[in-house]
Amino acid sequence: MAYQKIVSSGAVYKGKTGMWLYIFHRITGVALFGYLILHIISTALILLGPEVYEGAEAIYKNFYFRIAEIGLMAAILAHAINGLRIIAVDLWKRGSEFQKQLNIISLVLFIAIFIPSTYKMTTSYFDICLEKSQAGTTLTDCMIRPLPDWKSK
């Protein structure tokens, strides 16, 4: 019974990578649920018309939120790929024999998808910012402005 209590009352047990991935999966899961709720609220504003909806969306269009979006991408990708790893361990007959390999494949897969996505999300931010701003706007301007003022175009 003492053993039973240890394994079921907390997130930390004497595991290694598997234990940390388990904790990581829960943290990203809870964070993504929180974001999902916020996202439903901001999207629901579309029923109130273009002004209200785009006014709310404007809050998301600064550089600080772009960094948050890259974090969101990381959380989604990591949760998805780790979820696939869990499915492989659980449902593939020999999954538990190849846990180390599966961990490495998951990490490689994450990096292979996350790095190009981040590159695109970063360069595209500056491209659009420069394109929609007046001549003379610098990359620093794109980063420090609190809210974009290019909506009129």
Partner: peptide, 27 residues
């Protein structure tokens, strides 16, 4: 649902943030 969400949620992220850009998101 996890398997389906890999397609739906990751697909949604790529459509909105990689193939398009949320800066162009409007009504």
């Amino acid at each position: 649902s996890g398997l389906l969400l890999v397609l739906l949620a990751v697909g949604h992220m790529f459509i909105m943030h990689v193939f398009n850009d949320t800066l162009n998101l409007d009504y």
